[in-house]
């Protein structure tokens, strides 16, 4: 028996506010509670702290490409299983699962479209598919996109979002770094501009190959960009990482990217850049 009786009633659990699932969400950066529809209207940017939520490849197409002009190609390429790879599940089963949950066949969309009326080859990676990892299909699609750029003399704009190379395809994956780079070497020789946009997160072999090879490299604010992942570095050096380490602002400060551009300004910025890099003209005539 208890010695004392409670004189007051404790805090009774109140009826929990019924919030339909997914109607609101919390900003990962500042904790602000945001109405999901509001967020979508604002290009998935937190209006309080300007944190950029991750958006998918289709969203980038909508953001940067003139409406209705995007023609995607090589959508029918799917991963094979050259190593017969199995961890706790077979690799082909994991691929099927990813296809089902994302609605695309691999971690990148490639196609042509107009950006402010200028025809470009536009490549957007999909982080939700296998962490945006690069295997044979992603490597081939990017390579084909570069070739399309060269053939049509269309500038290339590529949006990275990737954890690196896909280990389930072993060395085939690692060599996609070499493959895409060789294609980009041809693009450079053809003097066609390549603008690389780094979004959260871009790490591993992706950063260490095509992502870092843009003629101009742009990053979205606050994106994690690096070679080694933060966890690996932490383990290696045995200490915590300084705040802001490997974020866009850190890369800008150390001279590895050209600029950080807010999502709302991306289209305008890329459009102006392409104008500068492609237009040939003689000085305006003063006599007119």
């Amino acid at each position: 028996m208890a010695w004392f009786e409670k004189s007051k009633k404790g805090l009774a659990p109140k009826e929990k506010a019924q919030i339909p699932d997914g109607l609101w969400l919390k900003c990962e950066n500042c904790g602000e509670i945001i109405f999901r529809k509001e967020l979508q209207k604002n290009l998935s940017i937190c209006q309080k702290c300007r944190f950029h939520f991750r958006i998918n490849g289709r969203d980038y197409i909508a953001l940067l490409i003139d409406e209705g002009t995007y023609r995607e190609f090589n959508t029918d390429l799917v991963s094979a299983d050259p190593l017969k790879f199995k961890d706790t599940k077979r690799y082909p089963d994991r691929v099927q699962q990813a296809i089902k949950s994302t609605g695309i066949n691999d971690a990148v969309r490639t196609g042509v479209g107009l950006l402010d009326g200028r025809k470009i080859v536009f490549v957007a990676m999909e982080f939700t598919f296998f962490g945006g990892s690069v295997g044979s299909v992603v490597g081939e699609k990017i390579t084909q996109a570069v070739i399309r750029s060269i053939e049509g003399r269309y500038p290339l704009v590529l949006v990275s979002a990737s954890g690196g190379m896909r280990m389930q395809e072993g060395m085939y994956s690692l060599l996609q770094m070499a493959k895409t780079t060789c294609a980009l070497a041809q693009l450079a020789e053809a003097k066609i501009p390549y603008i690389s946009l780094l979004t959260h997160p871009t790490t591993g072999g992706t950063t260490a190959s095509f992502s870092m090879l843009g003629n101009v490299i742009i990053a979205e604010p606050g994106a994690l960009i690096g070679f080694a992942g933060p966890r690996v570095i932490k383990q290696t050096i045995g200490q915590d990482l300084p705040p802001g380490f490997q974020r866009s602002e850190f890369l800008l400060q150390h001279g590895f990217i050209d600029m950080i551009v807010d999502r709302s300004q991306l289209k305008k910025t890329i459009s102006t850049l392409l104008m500068h890099l492609t237009t040939e003209a003689t000085p305006d005539d003063d006599s007119k």
Binding site: L77, N105, G139, T181, C182
Partner: peptide
């Protein structure tokens, strides 16, 4: 190197 990779067409 541009030839490296194995994939299928759906």
């Amino acid at each position: 190197f541009m030839k490296v990779g194995v994939w299928e067409k759906k």
